[in-house]
Amino acid sequence: MSLFVLRRIAIGIVMLFALSVLVFVLLRLAPGDPIDAYINPSAPLSPADLATLRERLGLNASLPVQFFGWLRAALSGDFGYSIQRAGVPVLPLVIGRIGPTILLMFTGLAIAIALGIAAGIVGAVRRNSATDVGLSVAAFVGISSPAFLTALLGLYAFSVLLHWAPSGGMLTPGAAFSYGDLAAHLVLPAVLLAIGYAALIMRYMRASLLEVLNQDYVRTARAKGVREFWVIVKHAVRNALLPIITLIGSTIGIAIGGAIFIESVFNWPGMGLLLVNAVETRDYPVIMCATLLTGASVIVVNLLTDLTYAAVDPRIQVA
């Protein structure tokens, strides 16, 4: 087990290095740099003025010098300063955004898991009923709806028209912190984030449970006179959950992508919003740091998924 973990960690480090090289090169290949992002084309500065600004930021150095300078500093924990936020160190900035993203993602995932599993069970148990068909149609709509569309429609319906939830942000500007205020701002983006995943989980859960319900041990349990409720809950659902665990773990990366849309639409101050702003303004240090931390989190979550899988199903061993 420990050898497996060590090997996965080593592979993870290599992957992170490759990711950093890839992102660094892609950023430099893209036209425009942080200074180009700084300038309004309707009121431009001269290239000579821009060169002075680039010199100050070290953007005139060769690419290998810039990359290895960044890498050396990053290995010692110094990810530099944000270019677009004067004087703000990148690492605390990015770490400060992890909390809001985790809060949004995990609230969304929790809602999605609860809704998806419950709907999947209902669909499987009442197979081909009107309820099952209705849930399946809803799931297809949920899976087919891109996150940005869901977010915009939800924003318009629940904030602009119905005034049920704030239109964005994490807390009311200027107001003292309260959990109620935080919950008020969290509920709409979390539910909208959950829709797609709930639909996906529902479909997987339904299929998995239908398969399990046809297994011999389920038939045996029924033959022994176990009540149907306990057959489903104790014997079928637990086994049907295995692929769902894999699904949740392997879609964390996709969930982060969904969170980026949701955070942008709702101005939720998480990693997604930070990354979008950083890409729009070519804030290289922020992009590098945020990408690496995101990549690291995906690698860690995948590792944890493998370990959880082994823990849930004793037949599986990692080595």
Binding site: P31, G32, D36, A37, I39, P44, P47, E280, R282
Partner: peptide
């Protein structure tokens, strides 16, 4: 294109 891309193209 976005602003930095535009500036990157025309200001060279």
């Amino acid at each position: 294109v976005d602003t930095p891309t535009y500036n990157g193209i025309v200001m060279k």
